[in-house]
Computed example of a mutant assay.
Amino acid sequence: MGNSAGKLDQADLEIYQLLTYFNKAEIIDCADKFFEMIESNPETSNVAAAVKERRLKLQQVKMPFSVIENKISALHVNPFGTRLLQVFSGGQTLQNGESCILFEDFLNMMSIMGPSAPLEVKAKWAFKVYDFNNDEKICSKDILEVVKRLTKPNENSAIELKPEELAEVVKNVLEETDLNNNGFITSTEFQQVATKSPEFQHSFKLSI
């Protein structure tokens, strides 16, 4: 299970088992990965010894997004990787202004994106991820941003949708999901559609 068991208090492990959808082994795996990133990052490697010697708690270390995206390939290739970190970190930043995430927020993200989290919970967080302007609704601009990220040309696809094609996709998504026809998607509407979608069940996940 790695060597991070000694870096997390037993009380912390018990609380995390209550607050997440992870078991003890999975929590320790996340702690191992987070500590590995602390050691590998030049900006935080100097505190690794302090964490090992229990002079500093793992939960106190702020991890830059850039390090996490570099070390976790599933985040690096995910078109919503940075956005996921933004939503789950709650806007944490380092002194230099760089975005970062704390261990408990990282653990929560991995738990929600894991296989044991209920679909309703996953849908609730997915709504936050796709609500790019943070106005508690998914409007046409949010949908357009989602579609652009999903259809961005890469090594597997060199075809970029034309503006009129993007507009048509946005229109279709609204027609299918905006159940009360008010021009945007509410959290309730999104959850109703997402939890019934096999594609959502298989796509909103992440592993280390």
Rank of each mutant, 00 (worst) to 15 (best):
M1C: 08
A5L: 08
A5I: 06
A5Y: 04
A5Q: 12
G6F: 12
G6P: 01
K7F: 15
Q10V: 12
Y16M: 08
L18I: 11
Y21T: 02
K24C: 07
I27S: 09
I28T: 06
D29T: 09
C30M: 12
F35L: 05
F35V: 11
S40M: 10
N41G: 02
T44S: 15
V47K: 03
V51S: 05
V51H: 01
R54G: 09
L56E: 13
K57Y: 02
Q59H: 12
Q60G: 06
V61D: 10
V61G: 09
K62N: 10
K62L: 14
M63S: 07
P64H: 10
S66K: 11
V67I: 14
V67C: 13
I68Y: 02
I68G: 00
I68D: 04
N70I: 01
K71M: 13
I72R: 06
H76L: 09
N78G: 09
N78I: 00
P79E: 00
P79A: 04
L85I: 05
L85W: 01
L85A: 05
Q86H: 04
Q86K: 12
V87N: 00
F88K: 07
F88R: 01
S89T: 07
G90V: 08
G91P: 11
T93A: 09
L94G: 04
Q95L: 05
S99N: 13
S99P: 00
C100A: 15
C100T: 14
C100L: 09
L102A: 05
L102I: 10
L102T: 07
F103N: 04
F103I: 03
E104G: 05
F106S: 03
G114C: 04
P118D: 06
E120G: 04
V121M: 00
V121F: 01
K124T: 05
A126L: 06
F127N: 11
V129I: 11
N134I: 09
N134L: 08
D135V: 02
D135T: 05
S140Q: 15
K141E: 14
K141Q: 14
K141L: 13
K141V: 10
K141G: 06
V147T: 03
K148T: 02
R149V: 00
K152N: 10
P153E: 08
N154H: 14
E155N: 12
S157K: 02
A158S: 14
E160I: 07
E160S: 13
L161W: 05
K162Q: 15
K162H: 11
K162Y: 07
E165A: 11
L166N: 04
A167F: 02
E168V: 04
E168I: 04
V169W: 08
V170F: 01
V170L: 10
N172Q: 14
V173R: 10
V173T: 15
V173W: 14
E175G: 10
N180M: 05
N180R: 05
N180A: 02
G183S: 02
G183L: 05
T186F: 00
S187Q: 13
S187G: 12
T188M: 09
E189D: 07
E189M: 06
A194M: 10
K196S: 15
K196R: 12
P198C: 00
E199R: 14
F200D: 12
Q201Y: 03
H202K: 13
H202C: 01
K205R: 14
K205F: 03
I208D: 05
I208T: 13
I208R: 10
